[in-house]
């Protein structure tokens, strides 16, 4: 079972993330914990000593109510392994702390697909993503697919991609496809032959084979990030290594309609 931490807010992204997590649980059983951080500005902080303590308890309690409300509304078919973890502080700091101290295998949060790759880049280059001790799954949409895509490109290290993604998905019942991305700015995306994927693709296939995973389908795509991002919607999730710069692959991940699992 994957020890998983899911971040919940009271919004559409969390609503999707909750439902998707229940779906993921069918393919890869999760030991699920949920968390919410109540962020307060300095202005909102009140009093000292007992007064402050009582005020903080009240704030945390309202956060717990929010989480319970979401859990009740979505009523997902995936039991929680423990009580919701609601704390006060900075969301990023508190989440990193919880991930480190809790020994989680996976962190999940909702992220709505937008047309702005800069917004996506700001998130994936944040402290949370660069300091997270475990892979992060950004849930952008729900899915009914039973297949995952391993997203490869010339900038991807196949060894890291296979090793880290198999730690999460190795025991799952998902089927695997490889999607190899090459940038081409054309009106229509082109599907190339396997040979166009180069040595990285060969290495990825061979490493997956060694890991005992068969690949159903390999697609070498030449297109722009939006086209390839749209292509990925057929998958339950797309796995890739965490992009470290504003690359075309980062833009594909930004445009992906499928949830994105980032490993590093």
């Amino acid at each position: 079972m994957l020890k998983t931490l899911l971040y919940i807010n009271e919004d559409l992204a969390s609503s999707i993330a909750l439902r998707y997590t229940a779906y993921l649980n069918k393919f890869s059983p999760l030991s699920l914990y949920v968390t919410h951080v109540v962020e307060q500005t300095e202005k909102e902080q009140a009093g000292t000593g007992l007064v402050k303590r009582a005020w903080e308890d009240g704030i945390v309690s309202s956060g717990e109510q929010l989480v319970n409300r979401m859990l009740r509304t979505e009523n997902i078919d995936c039991p929680l392994a423990g009580r919701p973890k609601v704390v006060m502080g900075k969301r990023e700091d508190e989440t990193i702390y919880e991930l480190r101290s809790g020994g989680y295998d996976l962190y999940i949060e909702g992220y709505l697909n937008t047309a702005d790759p800069d917004q996506f880049y700001a998130v994936v280059s944040s402290e949370l993503y660069s300091k997270s001790p475990c892979p992060i799954l950004m849930v952008k949409n729900l899915s009914i697919s039973k297949k995952c895509a391993l997203l490869c490109a010339s900038s991807v290290d196949p060894a890291v991609l296979v090793e880290k993604s198999m730690k999460i998905l190795g025991d799952s019942t998902f089927k695997f496809d490889i999607v190899y991305f090459k940038f081409k700015d054309a009106e229509q995306m082109q599907i190339l032959g396997k040979g166009d994927g180069g040595s990285n693709l060969q290495e990825l296939e061979s490493l997956l084979d060694k890991a005992g995973k068969s690949v159903d389908n390999v697609s070498v795509l030449a297109g722009n990030p939006e086209q390839v991002g749209d292509f990925l919607k057929q998958y339950a999730l797309a796995v890739s290594t965490l992009p470290s710069r504003k690359s075309m692959r980062m833009q594909v991940l930004a445009n992906s309609l499928a949830p994105v699992l980032l490993v590093r």
């Binding site: 559409l12 999707i16 709505l112 697909n113 937008t114 047309a115 702005d116 952008k140 949409n141 729900l142 899915s143 009914i144 697919s145 919607k233 309609l257």
Partner: peptide, 12 residues
């Protein structure tokens, strides 16, 4: 039924 969602700002 599987639907995909996306959020845009009005100018986009």
């Amino acid at each position: 039924i599987n639907v995909w969602v996306k959020l845009l700002n009005s100018e986009e």
